[in-house]
Design a protein around this nucleic acid. Structure first.
Length: 728
DNA sequence: AGGTTAGTAATTTTT
DNA sequence: TTACTAACCT
């Protein structure tokens, strides 16, 4: 009976066993947070307090939800089914489909992604006669999203709130946007929470239904909740108050997305009599890493206050290394060299990560790793379902499934090019608006009545006939076959085959992958919901590779070795954050630094460059204040003494800007040089046509050992290692 | 309708 | 520097 409790430390055990009443678990980095949460879940079920369907477990990411499901299942000894376990958005979508009519939608409403949202909003703004050059749609989108984050529908926006955008037109535009969503039978991400909260607030019977259903509530990453998520939780928890929130105020790094740390700081006030358990024993990192992280985060005010201490006896280890380098190129070389050295000493590449403040920083490291021949993966970036070709294919499927999906139809009506331009589209829109019918219906009508002529008429007619045909294929052959058919018959694959750009072959591959992915779903509707809610991107996950990602993307992960480059004022802490959010922004940047350091089990390498290229020109920069804030005794300034003096002598004046290239001679350590490798067997000869993952197709112009000079069709002349190309 | 060019802007982004 | 958009040309 208590099997699942063995191996927990006293605090963890307390957090698991305090089942009744409100509980806040303050879980520092690496203190077994997930373990507590899953064990608590299993404990509730195993002690017979609730059936699986009576526990509501909320996470932020699909990944976290998947992991929890897996681990709960393992503890129960059977697959965990029938659980209300998922992300805020997925759970709300599931609930909202039951009560959609209460907010003017039907159960089969569409969930729009960021792209659709923006296009729709832009249309609304243009319809209102707003100059979208002067007033950027993304800016208004952000305003609207912040309102939704705070649980505010248009009618609850006060005049005082409404001054920011386009001289007070934001509220009216918001209302118009919501009206458009309703006519399209669609909801955006924010709506899932907003609608559900409104329903729970306004319909006592629905609220009572969920009070009866959910006897226990578990919440992960509570520090990242926004106001509407908090309201939703509070409504659901208000009768029994069996709510357990797990979080770490020191890891709150999403305030710019509407997250409010105050939610966690206020927990005791919101739930009087709440118990608070602190998890401070860290089982992940060495003592110096923990001390460095703690020393840094201590500079923040307004914390609930936790101190991480080593939970392992063997937690001695290397000091945190801080290195100053001349410029960003040297930084990339140094990091690459360290990675290579560690790899040669037997460390796994998959146990190393380079964590940067902003996405563009990964490029320098990518290039360096390519040169060194070290495999890597970039985490984040464009997700699979966000790629243009995938979104196009899905748009076709959406129209197939739901002919009234105007946004999807608009996306593909001229992709591939069919000669349908602005004119034709405007005619469709006009008819659709006048007759209050969807675009596809308007198109059919216009063709019938001769409202369209020439090329557009034939093209749109063909497309509509195509959809009719594909709908039959869907009925007879199923959704997997229809996608392949449709891509061929619409000319989409042909378009990509004709496309000579570097990306085209990859795009075709992605579409094949999409067809494969589609086979995992029983129905088209199920697949489309998955696409909206579970945008994930797992390719490249396999194999021993170095990880490159932003600090934000690294939250929740851990590695033996972590590289933290670019610790310079302006870049990290980021100037724009400080300009926009002042002292609060700085504290969030510091938490980001804290997250970065605490990702490491054994080694942390921080570096800062004296010169960095920003767009076209070089700029000199000074080390991040966070470096000074690290406790001295935990830090080893590797090689920086000489470099510091060097920098003082050679650094260009801020006023002169650039400096002669000759001064930029890096001091690359010899040991980092490329090790000799045996030549590969299927050696590629001069004149061979090859394909490179990053540079595309090209012709080999020279070969020397394992290095090839290649004239790429698009990317120009490059020298690359032979194992990165394949013969075609 | 579609391709070309000039001008502008450039974090982080769990869903 | 690059990437994207809006105006401009064919």
């Amino acid at each position: 009976m208590t099997d699942h409790l063995s191996g927990l430390n006293p605090e963890q055990r307390e957090a698991v066993e305090a089942v009744d009443g409100p509980l806040l678990v303050l879980a520092g980095a690496g203190t077994g947070k997930t373990r507590v949460l899953t064990t608590r879940f299993a404990h509730i079920l195993l002690t017979g307090r609730a059936f699986p369907g009576q526990v509501l477990a909320v996470t932020f990411t699909n990944k976290a939800a998947r992991e929890m499901r897996l681990r709960v299942g393992a503890m129960l000894g059977r697959p965990a089914e029938g659980l209300w376990l998922g992300t805020f958005h997925a759970l709300c979508a599931r609930m909202l489909r039951r009560h959609a009519e209460l907010v003017g939608l039907t159960a089969s409403f569409n969930i729009l992604d960021a792209d659709d949202q923006l296009r729709l909003l832009k249309q609304v703004m243009e319809a209102d006669g707003l100059d979208t050059k002067r007033w950027a749609p993304p800016a208004l989108m952000a305003v609207i999203q912040r309102w939704k984050d705070r649980g505010l529908p248009p009618d609850r926006i006060t005049a005082a709130e409404n001054t920011d955008f386009a001289a007070g037109r934001a509220r009216a535009l918001y209302a118009a946007y919501q009206a458009r969503l309703r006519t399209l039978n669609a909801a955006d991400f924010g709506d899932l929470l907003l609608h559900m909260t409104e329903i729970l607030r306004g319909h006592a019977d629905v609220l009572a239904l969920y009070h009866r259903t959910f006897r226990y509530i578990l919440v992960d990453e509570y520090q990242d909740t926004n106001l509407v998520q908090y309201l939703w939780l509070r409504l659901l928890a208000q009768s029994h108050r069996n709510i357990c929130c797990v979080g770490d105020d020191d890891q709150s790094i999403y305030s710019w997305r509407g997250a409010e740390v105050e939610n966690i700081l206020r927990f005791e006030k919101d739930f009087p009599g709440a118990r608070i358990v602190r998890l401070e024993r860290n089982y992940r990192s060495t003592a110096p890493i923990l001390a460095a992280a703690s020393g840094l985060i201590a500079h923040n005010e307004g914390r609930l206050g936790k101190t991480l201490f080593p939970g392992r006896d063997d937690a001695t280890g290397e000091k945190v290394s801080v290195t100053g380098v001349w410029d960003s190129d040297e930084e990339a070389r140094a990091v690459g060299g360290h990675i290579e050295q560690l790899h040669r000493d037997g460390e796994k590449l998959a146990e190393m990560a380079v964590l940067v403040r902003a996405g563009f920083q990964t490029r320098a490291f990518e290039e360096r790793l390519i040169t060194l021949g070290l495999p890597y993966r970039v985490v984040g970036g464009l997700r699979f379902y966000e790629r243009a070709e995938i979104r196009d294919a899905i748009a076709y499927m959406r129209v197939l499934h739901q002919p009234a999906d105007d946004l999807a139809f608009e996306r593909i009506v001229n992709v591939p090019r069919r000669g349908v331009g602005e004119q034709a589209l405007r005619a469709l829109h006009t008819t659709a608006r006048e007759r209050q019918i969807p675009l596809t219906a308007a198109a059919a009508e216009l063709i019938e009545q001769g409202g369209l002529r020439g090329k557009p008429r034939a093209a749109i007619g063909d497309l509509l006939a195509g959809f009719a045909r594909w709908r039959e294929t869907l009925a007879s052959e199923g959704h997997v076959v229809v996608l392949a058919t449709l891509l061929d018959e619409s000319g989409y694959t042909e378009m990509l085959k004709q496309d000579k750009s570097i990306e085209a072959p990859g795009r075709l591959e992605n579409l094949k992958e999409l067809v494969r992915a589609l086979a995992d779903f029983e129905t088209l509707a199920g697949f489309l919901d998955h696409v909206s809610l579970v945008m994930e991107n797992d390719e490249n996950a396999e194999g021993d590779r170095v990880s490159l990602m932003t600090l934000h993307a690294a939250k929740g992960l851990e590695f033996d070795t972590v590289f933290l480059p670019g610790w310079e004022e302006g870049l990290f802490p980021n100037q724009r954050t400080m300009d926009e959010s002042g002292a609060k922004g700085l504290e969030e940047e510091r938490r980001l630094a804290y997250v970065g350091i605490t990702r490491a089990r054994r080694r942390v390498f921080i570096s800062h460059a004296a010169n960095r290229r920003i767009y076209a020109n070089w700029q000199s920069s000074i080390p991040s204040r966070f470096i000074e804030e690290l406790p001295d005794e935990q830090v080893a300034h590797a090689g920086s003494v000489a470099l510091r003096r060097d920098r003082m002598l050679a650094a260009p004046s801020v006023f002169t800007g650039g400096f002669p290239l000759a001064a930029r001679r890096p001091r690359t350590v010899e040991a980092w040089e490329q090790p000799a490798r045996p030549p590969r067997e299927d050696a590629i000869a001069v004149g061979a046509r090859v394909f490179h993952q990053k540079f595309g197709y090209g012709i080999v112009t020279a070969a020397e050992d394992d290095k090839l000079d290649i004239a790429f069709d698009k990317a120009g002349d490059k020298r690359v290692l032979d194992r990165f190309v394949e013969k075609v």
